[in-house]
Nucleic acid binder design. Structure first.
Lengths: 225, 225
DNA sequence: ATTAAGGTTAACCTAAAGTTAAGTTTTTTT
DNA sequence: AAAAAAACTTAACTTTAGGTTAACCTTAAT
């Protein structure tokens, strides 16, 4: 089974967060939360969630503004964002789509609707973001076949190595911190030693060429062609 | 390039059909249309399109129902179906993924999005082997006769093994997760143990050669020539 | 030169897959 | 309708790939 989808909920009311968390975790999602827009942005950057639920009405930085800022971040460009809004705020919906929202959830929250909507959104985003083939440098990555080709030679990578490669190559040139990597591949609850990442990186270097995996000391790793 | 992909559009509004037809034909697709679910089903059976765009909201037989019926037809089992839906339509309709939809297109239709979505979906669905016979490596599969031939020798496979072979060989090289396999062969609701799949794989390996069935540990299985 | 971050290696551990045989269920035959 | 056979699933056990760690080594930055 693929990794649990990760959902970030941002709302200034703890009650709502609890409700969302309860319902979403029950469905097997991994949930993280934030109590305001600023925090939400931070957590989003760190956790790279698959979907973000944003309350529109929040003090200081509201949902709309948060959404706009999230959309500025390359690694979150394709994340699904849905707003949480009171029922009759039609106008906000129009503005919301402009800010980059993918959908709306209305308060009061109906649990079954919430869940089926989330499912649908994740599933909708799923098939399309999965450009199955990527080609960078002499390296081709085919997610569907779990197969990597380097200079025409097929290489079968183990799961973790493959996931790591997919992650790094999803934004070539971008530095991923160890934290990023751990969160994306292992999830925030699993604890593995720091050296583990190094070992996987080493294997990748061995198999795909040293030069493509660059270490930024004190920061993390990046993939380059 | 292979034959033009054929797309069936089903909607009760002629305007929408025209708009879809115009945009899709411009992209080089072959388009056929139907003004209601019943007609859509008929045309689908006759034309065997590669992809079907179904409006959710239609009088009499709605998109959901049509989708379900289409999924019942063996020759259309693998056809890609996407729903056409207004952005704010009731969420319960979004749960129509359960009816077997592959994706959603929202109204109002943004042409560029429409086209790129269609492209992605068709690419993803891969080569559609409509013929009943497939031949890969030394293995020939005749779906109609439920018959497999390996190096000229006929082999009679039991149902489950045959279905598994058909599934895996429908996209050689592609990895199918256990979940994929369970959903496709047993259906979403049936629960069978994990070891069951292994046993069937084992039988296939025994009968058709170990080398064709590859295990990707932690991920699933794939068929290769 | 010091030191903290990262690299390397190999041993270890574990979850996942393989195997087998013994139940079940379904289908066919008599 | 009973018996037999075939297909399917399961359970218990074995094997193994791959993931992790620990201990030690190297490097680069101040």
């Amino acid at each position: 089974m693929a990794k649990k989808p990760k959902i970030l909920c941002v709302d200034d009311e703890q009650d709502i967060l609890d409700l969302l968390t309860f319902n979403l975790e029950k469905e097997g999602y991994e949930v993280c939360t934030a109590l305001n827009g600023k925090k939400g942005l931070e957590v989003a950057k760190k956790e790279l969630p698959d979907l973000i639920i944003l309350d529109v009405m929040m003090p200081e930085m509201d949902g709309m503004e948060t959404c706009r800022e999230i959309r500025e971040i390359p690694s979150l460009r394709n994340t699904v964002i849905t707003f949480l809004t009171a029922r009759n705020e039609d106008y906000s919906q129009i503005a919301g789509f402009e800010a980059g929202a993918d959908d709306f959830i209305t308060k009061p929250i109906r649990q079954r609707l919430l869940v089926s909507k989330i499912k649908a959104l994740l599933r909708r985003s799923g098939p399309l973001d999965k450009g199955t083939e990527v080609s960078i440098g002499g390296i081709e990555i085919d997610r569907e076949k779990y197969l990597v080709t380097k200079d025409g030679v097929q290489i079968q990578l183990p799961k973790k190595e493959f996931e790591l490669l997919v992650l790094l190559s999803s934004a070539p040139g971008r530095v991923f911190t160890r934290e990023n990597i751990l969160n994306s591949i292992w999830g925030n609850d699993v604890i593995v030693g720091d050296r583990t990442i190094d070992v996987h990186i080493r294997k990748l270097r061995e198999k795909l060429g040293d030069e493509n995996f660059k270490t930024i000391k004190g920061v993390g790793y990046k993939f380059e062609a």
